[in-house]
């Protein structure tokens, strides 16, 4: 199972950034590819609704 971490160490980084853009920008400036996810709480932050949506597998 360790192979996946070893594989990461030998790969070009392609980073998904969920949250403040500044953290993604800092990595992009160092030459890595960064994909920004513009996150906000689902279902207006209603936890029960989030749980239902997740159970439906839609997110």
């Amino acid at each position: 199972m360790q192979n996946k971490i070893d594989e990461l160490f030998k790969s070009e980084l392609v980073v998904v950034n969920i949250g403040p853009k500044m953290f993604g920008d800092a990595v992009r400036k160092q030459g890595a590819e960064v994909i920004q996810v513009d996150w906000k709480p689902l279902a207006g932050g209603d936890k029960e609704m989030i749980a239902i949506l997740e159970a439906l597998g839609g997110i």
Binding site: S11, E12, L13, V14, V15, V16, N17, I18, G19, F23
Partner: peptide, 8 residues
Amino acid sequence: KANLCIIS
């Protein structure tokens, strides 16, 4: 090819 995710 995405391989690492920053979560904040």
